[in-house]
Amino acid sequence: MSSSAAPSSGSGQPRSYIEVDRVAKRYRAQHSTPVDAIREVNLSIDKGEFVSIVGPSGCGKSTLLKIIGRLTAPSSGSITYYDGGAPIERPRIGMVFQDAVLLPWRTVMDNVMLPVEVAGVDMEVGRQRALDLLALVGLAGFGDKYPHELSGGMQQRASISRALVTDPGLLLMDEPFGALDALTREHMGLELQRIWSESRKTVIFVTHSISEAVFLSDRVIVMSDRPSTISMDVRIDLPRPRTFEMMATPQFGTQVTEIRNKLLAKTEF
């Protein structure tokens, strides 16, 4: 059920969608010793996979996410995207942050349309897609509202629509439900599963919540404390669609406990 991450640099092996090869990140501080955020990470992610990353605070989860999205350069190592075994350009990326990061001077609809405007693709097609996505996340009819008129959960749904509007190949989610209350959070998890099962995007999901990770993912990656590596790579075999009732089953509990023990063993409090 679990295995430690193996380097995927064998020549004859089929390439996954995303290959993270010996990635390390060192931050240079001006007047002190450099800080190693990530020591070495090797990771293969398949197309359409839902992968969660959990780990102690400050272990470099968000940094790894940004490196994968090519928003930050690694100090060493490489990120390569493959399609059918051949390397390709970085696919279009959608990103969801802890806060919705909606532009307050734009309506919900105009916020969702922002990536379409920037990409310069057909505005009419984009508008239709934005309407469909707003309906998909349960915000049909809210397009003309301004962000401050929506609750935190609704804002976050709008930001998920925005992330999906240009039909990206990869969805990066950096603790997207971290700012929501517990009840909204569970509900959003269920919603995200539904959205994912309809869109079948490759998703990398950073979270602090082990049960949220197990609930949503095909795979959970556990990162160690700084300088971090991958200390555990667990496949979650629970049947889909997953329900709140499933969270009460022994199977679910076993996987959560296994991950929690690994995290506790490595973390100093």
Binding site: G69, V101, L103, W105, L114, P115, E117, V118, A119
Partner: peptide
């Protein structure tokens, strides 16, 4: 300007001019 808004523009592939017109300028109004 909110650095997260700038990161967002970077992710959706905006160039410097688009970031100025769509984020920095309205933000400064």
């Amino acid at each position: 300007t909110d650095s997260r808004q700038i990161l967002l523009m970077q992710i959706i592939g905006a160039n410097a001019w688009q970031t100025f017109v769509k984020v920095r300028l309205p933000q400064a109004v």
